[in-house]
Design a binder for these strands. Structure first.
Length: 641
DNA sequence: TAAAATGCATGT
DNA sequence: CATGCATTTTAC
């Protein structure tokens, strides 16, 4: 007999089903292998959770229809993790397994995986020596112990080397490691650092852009124990590394780490559960720190891993705010580029010293938002009320709706009858154009969604970037200018401060240390907490403050919140069917787009698991009843307001 | 989508 | 109140 998880994401079918194993399939149907089974008439995919000798099922068991392959693609460790993730997110095991196990590729599976490489020597500890407990961390890992650390990385481009060193220490201690980063550029950096520390063949990189055959080939090499180290994006968190000793997550505040498919789990939660269940070490690192990581430190789950203030000061650039009413530089070119005097001076100093300058602009495009020149009201499309923008600087450029694409050449302000438009927001492309005029003869390069630069050479140049696309500069930037801070800080989002600071630190960390002339100018008022944190280079202070705010407001991570969304009747029905833990508060509903609405259910951290279980049970009741309108349940959603 | 369970009309 | 056929429900 075999206990099988069938590939059906209906909530009430989220349990194992027992099947008879025909004699002919006895050797092929292994624990963790893929099978096909007859389930309510049709043939469906399934995965063998375990082989058993008896079943609690009353009634006759159906036989397994066929074995897909004997490859045990679900390891015991990942099976436990997937169950825990499903429970945590009020989702189904089948949904998690779809994220955790890549599609099979028969030809690749028939080929052998390469022989494992010998474990490396201990890492060079000098890089981690800058951190208070850095040496202890490496020793603990080489000794096979499992420390958990919240790492505030020193500014500069060497953080991937630190990750390579903790991985090397883990390997030297006889265990494997999983490293997850938000995007391809970080993946390239950590991949390169691992290659230089471990040579080739000791690790694999896993990302969605590989293609099915190569992806499965690498994943199988991990499953079969040929490779003990994985670095990758989101889905790599589930990689079946044997004897897992360490999980690493870089920049956990990046929103791409939230899974967009059911059950909407966050990579941070997956890796924390995994470290806990597997008894592995955990390293959560970044230039900034999220309230979630602050909470882990506060709760004693993770220890802070920071450098002494003197080391931080020596590594950080000099950071200055322009103040609220920034005076624009007198230089006519700088005036047209809206450069505050301080920023213009910092850029000029750096360029004169032969160093590149990074300019971070929060919005891409040319003029992403226009406003009435007379009354300053935001200009909207007469047809669909979308924002009007300007695509290029051509003299005849007609304002265009950014939602429906309609041209709005004959725009008339509905509140004051004005006809003239002005730029409400200036995008990266126009900023680049204006900077070219402000600094004649200096090369202007742009890095953004269309073309992301990984690095720029040393030498004077202006590099205009949108957040998240900052190239590393050879030798570091002489100056980093952070423009239009208000556009980031005034967003109506609980995480606006945290997210702004994350983007600022990511750019500012690429500047040279102050002693080498590195300067950062932020176009914001120095009294704002996020600006204060940047000036003092103190991500921990800001995260602790952010956590205190969340405690006061009763939002995650101080509490647990479930978002329940769908058509109004379905949402109401689901909540009515949920046995809410004591003290659970319902907020809303608020209307969403296309007639759906959303309710938030808030409870204590302690009752979070119970709330997830209760919601899963309510989903099961609805799916068993074949309720037509699905309800989306998401725990601790990123977007709360 | 196959079997089992249930519903329902019809005939005695 | 059996019987046969249609529809709904279950899911091993």
């Amino acid at each position: 007999m075999a206990r099988v998880s069938v590939d059906a994401s209906l909530a009430h079918l989220d349990r194992p089903f027992d099947y008879l194993v025909p004699e002919s399939l006895d050797t092929a149907v292994t624990t963790g292998s893929r099978v096909r089974v007859r389930f309510s008439g049709r043939l469906v995919d399934g995965i063998v959770l375990e082989r058993v000798v008896s079943s609690a099922h009353v009634g006759t068991l159906a036989p397994i229809a066929r074995s897909v392959s004997p490859e045990p693609v679900l390891t015991a460790e990942v099976a436990r993790l997937a169950r825990a993730v499903a429970d945590r997110c009020a989702g189904t095991l089948a949904d998690v397994l779809r994220l955790a196990i890549p599609p099979r590729h028969a030809r690749v599976e028939a080929q052998p995986s390469p022989a494992p490489v010998a474990p490396p020597a201990r890492p060079d500890p000098s890089g981690w020596a800058s951190y208070d407990a850095g040496g202890l961390l490496l020793t603990a890992l080489t000794d096979g112990r499992s420390p958990r650390a919240a790492w505030a990385a020193l500014p500069g481009p060497t953080w991937p080397d630190r990750i390579a060193e903790v991985v090397q220490a883990t390997l030297a201690g006889g265990r494997g490691a999983v490293v997850v980063v938000p995007d391809r550029r970080d993946l390239d950096r950590v991949d390169a650092a691992l290659t230089s520390a471990l040579g080739s063949g000791a690790h694999v990189r896993l990302s969605a852009d590989l293609g099915p055959a190569e992806r499965y080939r690498r994943w199988l090499a991990v499953l079969r124990g040929s490779v003990r180290v994985v670095v990758g994006t989101r889905a790599a968190a589930f990689a079946p590394v044997a004897d897992l000793g360490l999980v690493v997550l870089w920049d956990d505040g990046d929103d791409v780490l939230a899974e967009p498919r059911a059950p909407y789990c966050h990579t941070r939660d997956v890796l924390l559960l995994r470290a806990e269940l597997a008894g592995a070490a955990a390293l959560l690192g970044g230039f900034s720190r999220t309230a979630e990581v602050a909470q882990l430190v506060d709760a004693g789950w993770a220890r802070p891993l920071v450098a002494p203030r003197s080391v931080v000061r020596a590594a950080a650039p000099r950071v200055r705010p322009t103040g609220d009413d920034a005076d624009l530089a007198r230089d006519p070119g700088a005036r047209s580029a809206r450069l505050p005097t301080l920023a213009w001076r910092a850029a000029k100093d750096a360029l004169d010293a032969g160093a590149p300058v990074l300019i971070q602009v929060p919005r891409r495009g040319y003029v992403p938002a226009l406003a009435c020149a007379r009354c300053r009201e935001t200009a909207r499309c007469p047809a669909c009320a979308g924002p009007l923008g300007q695509g290029s600087g051509a003299p005849a450029a007609v304002p265009t709706c950014r939602w429906c694409g309609r041209l709005a050449g004959d725009w008339l302000c509905p509140s004051c009858d004005g006809r003239a438009l002005r730029a409400a927001v200036v995008g990266a492309r126009r900023t680049a154009e204006e900077l070219g005029r402000a600094f004649p003869g200096i090369a202007v390069r742009t890095s953004g969604r269309d073309e992301v630069l990984a690095s720029v050479p040393a030498g004077p140049a202006l590099v205009v970037t949108t957040p998240g696309a900052e190239p590393v500069a050879e030798g570091g930037y002489g100056a980093v200018v952070l423009l239009d801070a208000w556009a980031l800080l005034t967003r109506a989002d609980l995480r606006a401060g945290e997210e702004t600071l994350r983007r600022w630190f990511a750019a500012a960390a690429l500047a040279r240390p102050a002693a080498s002339g590195g300067q950062v100018v932020v176009a914001a008022d120095g009294s704002l907490p996020a600006v204060q944190a940047l000036l003092r280079w103190d991500p921990v202070w800001h995260a602790d403050r952010e956590l205190a705010d969340r405690v006061a407001l009763g939002f995650p991570p101080a509490t647990r919140v479930a978002s329940v969304s769908g058509v109004p009747a379905a949402v109401a029905e689901l909540i009515a069917a949920t046995e809410l833990p004591d003290g659970t508060q319902a907020l809303g509903p608020v209307a969403l787009a296309d007639g759906r609405e959303r309710c938030l259910l808030r409870t204590t951290r302690r009752s979070g698991a119970a709330l997830a279980v209760a919601l899963a049970a309510a989903q099961a009741v609805r799916s068993a009843r074949k309720a037509p309108d699905p309800v989306r349940v998401e725990l601790d959603p990123l977007v709360l307001l």
